[in-house]
Structure formats: structure tokens, C-alpha cells
Design a protein around this nucleic acid. Sequence first.
DNA 1: TATAAAAGGACTAAAACGGTCCTAAAGGTG
DNA 2: CACCTTTAGGACCGTTTTAGTCCTTTTATA
Lengths: 136, 136
Amino acid sequence: MMELTRKGEYAIRGIIYLAQLPPGKVALISEIAEAAEVPQTFLAKILQSFAKIGLVKSFRGAGGGFTLGRSAEQITLREVVEAVEGPILPNRCLLGAGTCERDGTCGVHPVWREVQGKVVEVLDGVSIKELAARKK
Amino acid sequence: MMELTRKGEYAIRGIIYLAQLPPGKVALISEIAEAAEVPQTFLAKILQSFAKIGLVKSFRGAGGGFTLGRSAEQITLREVVEAVEGPILPNRCLLGAGTCERDGTCGVHPVWREVQGKVVEVLDGVSIKELAARKK
DNA sequence: TATAAAAGGACTAAAACGGTCCTAAAGGTG
DNA sequence: CACCTTTAGGACCGTTTTAGTCCTTTTATA
């Protein structure tokens, strides 16, 4: 249960690689993919989606590539995971008010809320900077 | 991320219904399915698998049906969830020693361990008895 | 202009999800 | 014993998600 997908793993590895680069340096997708041991075209898709939400910056053409969109200590693991896997949500019922018709009666509800809270807390407490430092 | 499947939801609803029955009473699959608002044949599969691991007891033939395999306070939410969704495992790497070749180098590892620990803690802290009582 | 990237879109195979249906086996009842 | 009731087991199936690939287009540099 609760497994991170490959996509999630790849995203994390890729972004950690970017965080380990000297500040300001751009990396080619081919370089990142090789270093992070991730299929290149697949990682390209992931980083492109990250570029859209500002998590990374991308530059086209010769001399182009990717950089972090912000400094590594301002990116949490949660952000990366949610960007790729969607919100942390152990049960669909937790989505919006009224989404679950069993809302009132269901006693399991608060348990899922608690799980959600704990997971978010852990993932929010870890920045990409820390992870990049650890891995080196 | 981390969503419980329908199967998981159905399993929980079904077993809570069993927990709300007067002790010793057996319930027909048709009865449980209707009460829990779950497709009957699908729930049958789930409860059959539960019978194999002793989470419920089943009786065939006229007057047959299902009961809890143990008293409701001895069944945790975690057990039910894991029975149906597999172990709580935010990352495949956490499975066995040596499963993940990045084990030593990967700094994200301990974070997943922590997530796993928190979730297990929450789910282990809730018994089916409590849930059954809340819902009534 | 030629070249070097990333961006976007279409496509695909395989697995997981969410079931259904049919037959078999086991246990009561007259 | 025959019949009925109820779970057990297996096969099957459509849809969605996962995990990618490939090709073309756009943008930027030299």
C-alpha cells in the first residue's frame, strides 16, 4: 500500500541531482538522466512538468538545460512528490467537503485525516537541500 | 498519492458491519453487501481471502455465513488494510534488505522509513471495535 | 543558417483495478 | 438419500494507470 511510483522516484532522483550542481549551472537532460539512472525521455516529461509549475527552470537551445527553480532549501520533498503523484490523500473521501456521502456516518474518516497529516508533516520537514547533502 | 483502493474501503466497511453484529451471529454475504453498500460478488472474494488468514470465519450451507475470526478489539485497522492492500510500504526499497541497490547511498530512504512508521502507528492504534462503535 | 537543446503530442505494452459469472464443494433438512 | 442453501474457486473482462518510446516542433545559440 501507498507506494511511490517510478515516476516519483525518478523525479526525486533528478531533482536531487540538480540540487547537487554548483549554483547557476544548467544540466542537460541527458546528463541528469544518466547520473540519476533514469530513462531519459521519461525524465524529460517529468522535468517539463516541473518547469511549468516553477519547480525547475528550463532553457532551450545550445547551452540550454535545467536548473532548480528555487534554492534547494526552499523545495520540500512533499512538493516534489505531490507535483508528480498528486496530493497526499489516503482516501478519496478526504478530497473536498461533500465528496463523500458517508462523511457524517463514517468513523474511519478521522483516521485517514490523521494519516494524511502525519505523512504531510514528515515530507514537509525534509528539504531537497538536506537530501542532496546526505547523498553526496 | 497513497490512495486506498475500493477493495480496501469495501473490506473495512464489511468487517465493521460484522463487528456490529451481536456476538456469535453469522451474516450472509448478501446481507453484509447490502448493508455496507458493496458489490456482493466482489465482497465475497474479499471475505473469502479474509477467511483464509483467520480474520473472519466462514460457514457453508444453510444457516451459514460470516463472523469475525476474533473479537473486534483484537483486530486493528492496519491488519484489515494490509490484508487487502499488502504491507504499508511507501517505497519498494523498504521491502527487504538488499532489495534496493541504492540502499547505502540514497538519502531519501530514511524518510520513507519514517513515513511508514507513522502510518503503521496510526493504523495499529485503531481497532475495529472502536470503528464499529463510532459508526453506530 | 545550421545546430543544439527542450516542448509537445501521439502512441503503446503491460499491469492493476474493479468487477462479473459459472461451476464446484460443503453443510443442513425433509 | 435427495435437495436446498451458502461459501469457495477459477476464468474471464472492460477500463484505467503505469511506464515508457518516438517523432515533430519550437526556441535559442553560434
